[in-house]
Design a protein around this nucleic acid. Sequence first.
DNA 1: CAGTGGTCTAGACCACCCA
DNA 2: GGGTGGTCTAGACCACTGC
Lengths: 243, 243
Amino acid sequence: MLVERRRSVASQATAILAERIRTQMYPPGARLPSESELAVEMGVSRASIRTALGQLATQGLVLRKQGDGTYVNVHVETVPTSLSGLWNFLRLIEMSGRRPSIEVLAQTVRAASSLEQERLLLPPDGQVFCLQRVFFADDVPVILASNALPLDALRVPPLHCDGHLPIDEFIHCYSGAQIAYDIFDISASLPDVAVRAILRLNEHEPIIALAQVFYDRDNQPLLCGSTSYNDKLLSLRLVQSWS
Amino acid sequence: MLVERRRSVASQATAILAERIRTQMYPPGARLPSESELAVEMGVSRASIRTALGQLATQGLVLRKQGDGTYVNVHVETVPTSLSGLWNFLRLIEMSGRRPSIEVLAQTVRAASSLEQERLLLPPDGQVFCLQRVFFADDVPVILASNALPLDALRVPPLHCDGHLPIDEFIHCYSGAQIAYDIFDISASLPDVAVRAILRLNEHEPIIALAQVFYDRDNQPLLCGSTSYNDKLLSLRLVQSWS
DNA sequence: CAGTGGTCTAGACCACCCA
DNA sequence: GGGTGGTCTAGACCACTGC
């Protein structure tokens, strides 16, 4: 392995192994080379390989069996997502086998709603930059996402970044901050008439509503959002690995 | 630290540190001792302490800042759950500050439905042991869970285990198997009249439906289930940590 | 029995933060 | 500069699996 600077050896090994699984150099169900062999092949320590395999196991791509070996999960092709990929809606749509696209409905600066004030810890006169987008799968609307950033956290003028970035890069682009964690509620809701129109839903058709807040390492809220997710058209399927 | 056999040093350290956070020996927002100090105090290597802190960080209990220190997440008291705690409904209810209880509605052996046949890879005449339970929070029904195990996977006669065990121990008790991973769909649904009666819901009141399958290390399905989750009474709040 | 993954250690160096 | 977490190594031993 040609070791680059700037990226850890372990994460480079993760990327290489994930690529080999994706291209079916290691097909579903296959046993990977042993940790020692991979370590020698890539010219790194076994600990680094173990870190990489651990990440792949967390994502559900491989299964490790003590005394036996490490195997590619046979369900890798049925496109569940791990929790860490939840917020990348474009990739989610792409993985479902459809063509993703985005339409930006609105980019506005406005007074924060009381809910946003509470979630972003803003004063009563606080302002937010609000971005409202629709995600399409093969030109059918499947997700409506509405995000609000505190206006005084912006380091670039609003409207400068495009809306195609995943949430972590989006936040980093606008405010220079990094996400440490997020907290979100999942609920079932009957959308109001405006949302129904955008997502082309019938009355009494329930959808998933996600309400999320992203925080930085100092527990400061960076962004809050509300997402309407049409689970009938884009299944919300997660994979979870057990220790 | 008195090192026991049978449990890894790292997981014991995790338990000790989690307990210190729970009892507020390390209160919300506080900085933990450095990794080296903890290693010396517990008489283990720094690597083991790092493994433990990594687990706590994944669960969202602590935040680690390079060049600074490790801090207790100020949101530990607002009871979000990490994905790994999702299936422990009793604990979920307990963490919300209410008294959890369980009622077993039915324990039956019956022919597998076509959906169960598909999900459990059973032949057309396959049979399942089915357990249907309701979870209460302060005597109010909040979750209806229906689980099916392949009958021929049972190593003990049906009805021998009680229904209070978390899912992994439940499966282990009945079939001796261990969960390697699970795949589940989250959807919004309008429950039918039977579910509405059990969860005391009005018509047109949507709830979260979870459809899950648990697998072992050989990709064999161990158990499948359908869960109706009243998110209006028990919020489904997850915490996710980033890298 | 040989080989695998699981655990643990001791030590080194780096990047980063703050005083 | 001194201390912190982040990364990486080399080596050791254990627990488990399959033959």
